[in-house]
Nucleic acid binder design. Structure first.
Lengths: 80, 80
DNA sequence: TCTCCTATTTATAACGG
DNA sequence: TCCGTTATAAATAGGAG
């Protein structure tokens, strides 16, 4: 998408990489949410960015099977 | 995308829901892979579909920080 | 359930602030 | 780093096999 084709390789320019991360990270989370709702499945997405930040999307509530994975992630993230 | 707009709600027809899951699940994994490569981040996507099946995408290797989460997921999945 | 097809919607690259 | 715009690449809905 966009004004040009993108090669599937690490973006070397740090600034561009950050900008692309910001956009695509949001896009991925949106897609994840759509998949969960449309298809009625449980899913989680975990992202560790280089700066030690992390992002997460999870469908379902605390009683869902996937919650144990989410809990595991939070435990890990808080200990890092 | 596609021939019509899609409402963000559960697809009631089971057959359509399966077909949409099949397509979007692949799309999400592809997006995840692209984000990981382009932006040099570690990430995992876990999906539990209704039929007790699960799908996963993880960047990074066994020495990456996220591997503990992945291991947790596999442990959970194999015990289910 | 998968593949092919293609009209259409959607995501996003590049740019300016 | 975030937001808005716009041209364009990509994802995908619906239908057929």
């Amino acid at each position: 998408m966009g004004r040009g084709k993108v090669e599937l390789k690490r973006i070397e320019d740090k600034c561009s990489r950050q900008v692309t991360f910001s956009k695509r990270h949001k896009g991925l989370m949106k897609k994840a949410r759509e998949l969960a709702v449309l298809c009625d499945v449980e899913l989680s997405v975990f992202i560790f960015s280089g700066g030690g930040r992390f992002y997460e999307f999870s469908s379902g509530d605390s009683t869902s099977p996937i919650s144990s994975i989410v809990a595991c992630f939070h435990l890990y993230a808080s200990a890092t």
